[in-house]
Simulated scan of single mutants.
Amino acid sequence: MAEVQLEDVRKVYDNGHVAVHGATFDIADGELLVLVGPSGCGKSTLLRMIAGLEEISAGTLRIGGRVVNDVAPRDRDIAMVFQSYALYPHMTVAENLAFGLKLRGHPRAEIERRVREAAAMLGLESMLDKRPRELSGGQRQRVALGRALVREPAVFLLDEPLSNLDAKLRHSTRTEIARLHQRLGATMVYVTHDQVEAMTLGQRIVVLDGGRIQQIDTPMALYQRPANLFVAGFLGSPAMNMLEGELRGGDGGLGLALEGGATVPLPGVEVPAAWLGRRVVLGVRPEHLQPHPRGGLRARVEVVEPVGSEAYLHLDFAGRSLVARLAPQDLPAPGAELDLRADPAHLHFFDPDGGARLGP
């Protein structure tokens, strides 16, 4: 396996569009790193530059310590799994798995060993004589993974490999990829727009927006300490609640004064004195907005969504939409008034003029 290093890597197309603005980060040997962000954020372009399928406009890319900016894709010792399975329909599963190795002139015994090992690892032994049309979507995706696996590359690159699967298959195949990574200790770069995939698969996550890196950290660090409003809103389902207003102190304690006259009480919250009188965006996750008889935040229940192990309350507070995540017991009815409290230990403050996180 190998370390991957990007130093100020940029992609500028001929029309002047900058798809990636100066990406700098390292992917450790054996790490599973996820690139995540909305459509058009530059994540697939970044992956394709690592693969050699897109020319690097500026910066330096190293794989295993070797600069590969001008190295052809076949000579980078990488294997790529695409969103499309791209299997040869006239070939059996075994032939699909072996095809790339045959093109590279590997000995027959070596090819058979690698195909046999990959099939065993992915549970494909009973399907080796079948053709792609006889397989389910999940099985086809496993064959696509196996085709990369038999290459025994230094780096695996996966570009939204689960996008064509239904929800149940996505979950099971995602688990297979995680197990595969643990078993191989392989260096993997995984691209997705799905924040659940990113949070559950990645050892670290690179969050992108508009071609710029917003934050790089472990999944829970991103969730608990988002660097800016974009990361705070993108990661988490349901999304973080956001309220913009002015921080004010007084005899009643700290509060966030909203436009229109409503105030969000913040009992037990301490902020630097310099923040008083400042406009901020207050962020609170749905699980940290809970019913409390003296919470001081009275909202009206609009919609109740029980989803089994938990329930989401969609609320109206002074004309603003909020979501609370509760245990599915003794749920209020739509139209009911509810007193809530934002957990003072789990609040986030952001600068409304740029979105940067305030404080640690």
Rank of each mutant, 00 (worst) to 15 (best):
M199K: 03
K168M: 06
A186T: 13
Y190M: 04
A186I: 12
V189C: 07
E197G: 02
H171C: 11
G202W: 02
H193E: 14
M199S: 02
M188V: 10
T187N: 09
R170S: 04
S163M: 09
A167G: 11
H181G: 15
A198I: 03
A186L: 12
E176Q: 14
R174A: 14
A178P: 05
T200W: 00
Q195A: 03
V189D: 04
R174V: 13
D194E: 12
T173H: 04
R170F: 01
R204K: 06
G185F: 08
H193Y: 11
T187M: 09
S163R: 06
E176C: 09
D166H: 07
S172A: 13
E176Y: 02
Q195G: 02
H193L: 04
L162C: 11
L184M: 12
A178W: 01
S163V: 12
A198F: 00
A167W: 03
L165C: 12
T173P: 05
A186S: 15
R204C: 14
T173F: 07
A178F: 04
A198S: 01
L201M: 12
Q182D: 07
Y190E: 11
T200K: 01
R204P: 07
R204F: 11
T192E: 06
R170Y: 00
R174W: 06
A198G: 00
R174Y: 04
